[in-house]
C-alpha cells in the first residue's frame, strides 16, 4: 500500500497541471497514474476520494449541492471498487489454477510421450497434439522380445482435464498388461473390464490395438469402436478402410472383440488416428476422409514422421490454428 499523503500530493500535482495547462500530455499523465494505482491495488473509490479532497482544497466554499453530488458518486463507486477487488482476486486464483494445470499437463506429457521403437523393416511416424492443455488421446508402442510391435491408439470421448484423467487410467491399465500381448482381442477385453469398473458411465473410450508380427509381416488387430484407419496397398496403389468392428470400451463388461488380420507387403502403410483428425472443421464443414487420404498421398515419398508432421501442419492451417479436438496420427510403413 502506498502512503495516503504521498498519493494525495502526487494526484494533486497532476490534477493542477491539467487544470492549468490542459494538454494531451497532462491527460497522458492521468492515464499513467491510473496504471500506477492499479499496480498498487488502489480501488476506484479511493481515487475518487482523492479527487474530491483536492477539489475541496481548491474550492473550500463549494456549493453544498455540488458537494452532495460528489458524495452520491462516491457511494455509487463503492460497488465498482468491490467488483474491482473481486476481479483481482479471481485473476490471482486463475493464475494459480493455470500453474496447477501446467504441472498436470507436464505430468501427463511424461506419461503420454513414450519412446517410438526403431525397426529396420518398419518406418514409424507419430504426432499427438492436445486441443487444450491436456490430451484425451493416447498412443503406445511396445517392442517385445520376438521383435513384434504392439501399437495402441485410444481416444477418450471429450477433451480437456476430464478426458486427460481418464486417459491416465488407460495408460496404467496398459502398463499392467502382461508383456506378451499376443491377442489384440484379449487385450481389449481386459481393458474393457477395467474401464467398465473405473470410469463414469458418461465417458467412453475408443481404442485400436494392433500387433505387428515381423516374421509373418502380418498385422493382427481389434478395435473398440475406434475411428477406422487406412491401409495402403502399394501393389494396387490404393487406400482402403482398415475396418474392424467392436463396441467402445466401458459399455458392457462381457463384450468380446473380434480379431482381424492383414498382410503387409513392402511399401504398404497402416494409418491410424483419433477422431480429432477426421473432425477437423474448416469453413466448408468437416474434413472428408478422402481429403486426409489426399494429404497423405501428396507426401508418400517422405518418411512416416515427415508425412504425419506435414498432414498436421496442413490441417492446423485449414482450421485457423485452432484445434477443436485432440489430434493423434500414426503411420507405419513397411520398408523391407
Amino acid at each position: 500500500m502506498i502512503d495516503h499523503k504521498e498519493l494525495y500530493q502526487h494526484y494533486r500535482k497532476l490534477l493542477i497541471e491539467h487544470m492549468e495547462r490542459k494538454s494531451e500530455k497532462t491527460l497522458y499523465n492521468g492515464q499513467l497514474f491510473s496504471r500506477q494505482m492499479m499496480e498498487n491495488g488502489v480501488s476506484p473509490e479511493d481515487v475518487l476520494s482523492l479527487h474530491i479532497d483536492v477539489i475541496k482544497e481548491f474550492y473550500p466554499h463549494m456549493d453544498e449541492k455540488f458537494q452532495s453530488a460528489f458524495d452520491f458518486l462516491l457511494e455509487a463507486m463503492i460497488g465498482y471498487g468491490l467488483a474491482y477487488r473481486e476481479h483481482q482476486n479471481l485473476r490471482y486464483k486463475q493464475r494459480q489454477l493455470e500453474s496447477e494445470i501446467d504441472i498436470a499437463a507436464d505430468v501427463q506429457q511424461s506419461l503420454l510421450v513414450g519412446e517410438v521403437p526403431h525397426y529396420d523393416f518398419l518406418d514409424i511416424g507419430v504426432i499427438s497434439r492436445p486441443a487444450k492443455r491436456m490430451s484425451g488421446d493416447y498412443y503406445h508402442f511396445v517392442k517385445d522380445e520376438q521383435n513384434c510391435l504392439s501399437v495402441a491408439i485410444a481416444d477418450v470421448i471429450g477433451k480437456g482435464i476430464p478426458a486427460a484423467l481418464c486417459m491416465s487410467m488407460i495408460k496404467y491399465a496398459m502398463d499392467s498388461e502382461p508383456e506378451q500381448r499376443t491377442k489384440p482381442g484379449a487385450v481389449l477385453e481386459n481393458l474393457n473390464r477395467v474401464v467398465e469398473q473405473n470410469v463414469d458411465p458418461s465417458m467412453f473410450i475408443t481404442m485400436f490395438y494392433g500387433l505387428y508380427n515381423e516374421s509373418q509381416h502380418r498385422l493382427y488387430f481389434a478395435s473398440a469402436g475406434h475411428e477406422p484407419g487406412f491401409y495402403y496397398s502399394s501393389n494396387k496403389d490404393e487406400f482402403q478402410e482398415l475396418i474392424a468392428k467392436g463396441r467402445v470400451l466401458g459399455l458392457d463388461r462381457s463384450t468380446k472383440y473380434r480379431e482381424y488380420e492383414k498382410n503387409i507387403d513392402v511399401g504398404d502403410m497402416v494409418i491410424l488416428f483419433s477422431d480429432g483428425v477426421t473432425e477437423c472443421r474448416t469453413e466448408k464443414g468437416f474434413i472428408e476422409r478422402d481429403e486426409i487420404v489426399r494429404l497423405i498421398r501428396q507426401r508418400m515419398h517422405l518418411s512416416s514422421q515427415e508425412i504425419v508432421d506435414g498432414v498436421y501442419k496442413e490441417l492446423e492451417r485449414l482450421q485457423d490454428f485452432q484445434l477443436r479436438d485432440d489430434f493423434t496420427l500414426i503411420i507405419l510403413k513397411r520398408e523391407v
Binding site: 473509490e45 479511493d46 476520494s49 458524495d71 462516491l74 457511494e75 463503492i78
Partner: peptide
C-alpha cells in the same frame, strides 16, 4: 471515519 470508509460501512 473518513468519507470513503463511511460509504464502505454503509454499503
Amino acid at each position: 471515519f473518513g468519507h470513503v470508509d463511511q460509504a464502505r460501512i454503509a454499503t
